[in-house]
Each structure stands twice: as C-alpha cells, then as structure tokens.
Design a protein around this nucleic acid. Sequence first.
DNA 1: ATATAATACTATACGCCGTATAATATTATT
DNA 2: AATAATATTATACGGCGTATAGTATTATAT
Lengths: 110, 110
Amino acid sequence: MDAQMKRGLLEACVLSLLLKGDSYGYLLIQEVSALMPISESTLYPVLRRLEAAGQLTVYSREHNGRLRKYYAITENGKAQIQSFLKEWEDVNRVYTFILTATTKEENTHE
Amino acid sequence: MDAQMKRGLLEACVLSLLLKGDSYGYLLIQEVSALMPISESTLYPVLRRLEAAGQLTVYSREHNGRLRKYYAITENGKAQIQSFLKEWEDVNRVYTFILTATTKEENTHE
DNA sequence: ATATAATACTATACGCCGTATAATATTATT
DNA sequence: AATAATATTATACGGCGTATAGTATTATAT
C-alpha cells in the first residue's frame, strides 16, 4: 500500500486492534500486517505517539522470564477512533467525487 | 480535514477535476475547496509534481491581457486515477476493519 | 552443540508533502 | 483612491512512514 495512504489510518488501526484486549509490539505487528504492510520502525513510533497523546497506556508484565510491554487503549483512545470515523466521512466524500468523475469520463467515450 | 488524510487524495482529486476539461490554478483552488480545505501553497506544488510525473501538461493562454497557465490531464494522468482507485480498495479494507472492530466493541457494552 | 528462526524492542537518517507566511502583480469594484 | 478578486511563486517547518541496522533472549532444527 502506498505510504501516503497509510497516514492517519495506522493509528486508528492500532487503536482498533486494542479494543479486543491489551497487546504488545510484536503481536501488533503481526496483526497489522494482515491488513497492510508495516515494519517495526513504523509501528513503535506510532505506539509512542499514541501513548504521548494519552490514547493508550503501557505496562510491563513478565513473560517467559522477560519483561514484555503491553499496550492498553484508554477512553481517550476510544474517543479518538470515533473522531477518526467522523473525519473519514469527509475523505469518503472526496473519494466518491473521484469515482463519479471517473465514471462520467468513461461515459463520454461511449 | 486532517492533513494526514489528504495525502494521496489530493493528487487524484486534482486529476479528476481535469477530466471535465482544462483548468488553471485559481479555479482549481476554488473547486478543490468545495471538497476539502486547500491553500495555494499546497495546490501549486501538487501541480508541479503531477507535471513532473507526466500526468498533466501545462500551456499558457492569454486571458484579459495576461498569460494564464492552463493544466490538461494526460493519458498517463488518467491511468494514475485508475491506480489510485485500485489502491483505495486496500484502504477501504482497513477502514472496514476499524468500523467492524468499533461496532463489536459497542456490542460488548450492551 | 550450534546454527537458525522467532520473539521483542530501539535508534538514526532520509524523504515526501501539507501548511503557514509572505511576496508580487494585475484587474474589477466601490 | 481603496479594496477585493484574480493569479502565481518562494521559503522554512513539521509530521510521519521507511530503510537500515543494532541489541538481546528463547525455541527449534540439524
């Protein structure tokens, strides 16, 4: 997927994944990868940003003798998903315009 | 609209507007503004990029005693819109995931 | 036993692109 | 005479996805 198109989508995607329960970096990478290509160097900064924005909290738990960082979505984070969905209405309006313009263009060739 | 969400959308939007006929900077700004907020400092670089990519061509015509730059979409540009629409399928898949995850989350509170 | 893969996270430098701000110049309107 | 509308360009900034690379532990395969 084109890098430009990921912008704004990624954070909402990560937050949505956390809705079904706390998770950690490595697992999140696998889960996000099922939806779009992602590298560690993209995901971890996203997690840092979401934490700084109070949209998720971080805590450590021991796992196989090591500390693993778990990420939990906050109420703030849930509200952020709603904001995203609302913003997306505008995006979809533009997309619909492009689609319509393209369809009309095709018709002029008939 | 959030700046991140415009990325990738803007170029396709401008190209789509040119499908119905050649246009010029000032008019394009008005037309794009109807779909999303845009400033000159965003649009003109977009036009330069599209020109560099061979997706539009530029020519000058006199208008009210002054030269005005007109922009015309190329076949390359039309193909780019199609590429955009195809890429957008991936974007929509992620959006649908977020929407579904949010709906499920709401259900757990019922 | 040891090499390899999987797990788990961090750091740095780069490049794209939307934005604010500002400058320039002409024509139309009040 | 002043102001708004028309029309375009330049510069510096900041957000963020990416490539690349480094570090460290545990499980699996040969």
